[in-house]
């Protein structure tokens, strides 16, 4: 009897989001069995401490991860198979706590090394729009993505990165950009000698403002910087697990581009990269859509 009740609850959770997305019907998106509830907190949003008791109010969803096996290069070796996800909001911002097993923490990228990373993805088709493909969206059906990379967190914390971190004992006679006589001229030369910085590639940004990047996509290979950075994230690696909290403002104004509006339902999916397995780009574990709804604070 108990089991049966549980199934009914699960069924309700799947059905709920379809009220919000006009096109979700019989041919709607494939869904993870259990939905995510973004519960309102009455106290401060616990954005820094994953052990904050406020997180106990957020119901945990265990998201099943699948290999990315659609776009080349495909992941052929299975990685971490589940990720635990919780979410809270305070009426202004939403916070997502993601935690998953990863024996080692990697935070540098070289020819033969990659960084650990995690991403959240949301449909960006509006409240009544069609649901995009959970794998990077589709042409005309964009998705919004927040990507957290441990390599960016390391940089944000002011630690050495790139060759300074990888090869601290290297010997180089001369870096031309360092030869500028004034700080201004050195800044100009630094750009001149670094094309990705000169053309504004966020991957190469000298100053990082967040350990996350806000992105959009309309299908594989189309991932693009969102042009505006509103999210932030912080991760802790402990006892063979990553716990990362990603925060993002809620969309409370009536602007059409919102992706997270209290009261409306939507979806979320996640992706995980394991640096020690040299995963990056499309070499990742990913989930299908998980229904999302907002809930008032628990009494």
């Amino acid at each position: 009897m108990k089991i049966r009740i549980l199934w009914i609850v699960a069924g309700l959770l799947i059905a709920l989001p379809s009220c919000g997305k006009g096109s979700v019907g019989g041919d709607g998106p494939a869904l993870a069995a259990k939905g995510l509830t973004i519960t309102k907190v009455t106290a401060a949003l616990p954005v820094e401490d994953p052990a904050d008791p406020a997180w106990d109010d957020a119901r945990e969803v265990v998201v099943t991860l699948l290999v990315q096996d659609v776009a080349e290069p495909r992941l052929t070796e299975k990685g971490v198979e589940t990720l635990r996800l919780r979410a809270l909001h305070d009426g202004v911002r939403a916070a997502f706590r993601l935690d998953w097993a990863d024996a080692t923490a990697e935070d540098l990228v070289e020819i033969d090394q990659s960084t650990d990373a995690v991403a959240l993805e949301f449909p960006a088709t509006g409240p009544d729009g069609p649901v995009p493909d959970s794998m990077m969206g589709e042409e005309g059906k964009p998705v919004s993505i927040i990507l957290w990379r441990n390599a960016w967190q390391r940089r944000l914390m002011g630690e050495a990165y790139g060759v300074e971190a990888l090869y601290p004992n290297r010997s180089v006679d001369h870096y031309p950009p360092d030869a500028g006589p004034t700080p201004e001229s050195r800044a100009v030369l630094k750009k001149l000698y670094n094309p990705p910085v000169a053309v504004g590639n966020p991957m190469a940004a000298v100053e990082r403002i967040s350990a996350t990047q806000d992105l959009t996509a309309e299908g594989f290979g189309t991932l693009t910087d969102a042009g505006k950075q509103t999210s932030s994230g912080e991760g802790i690696h402990q006892d063979g697990r990553w716990t990362v909290i990603i925060t993002r403002p809620l969309d409370t104004t009536p602007a059409a581009a919102g992706i997270l509006r209290p009261g409306e339902t939507t979806y979320v999916s996640v992706a995980v990269w394991n640096g020690s397995k040299n995963q990056s780009g499309s070499l990742k574990m990913r989930s299908i859509w998980v229904p999302v709804r907002f809930a008032e604070a628990r009494p």
């Binding site: 990228v109 070289e110 670094n194 991957m203 190469a204």
Partner: peptide, 8 residues
């Protein structure tokens, strides 16, 4: 070649 400083 991968430029580990620029990330590209």
């Amino acid at each position: 070649f991968f430029n580990a400083d620029a990330g590209v």
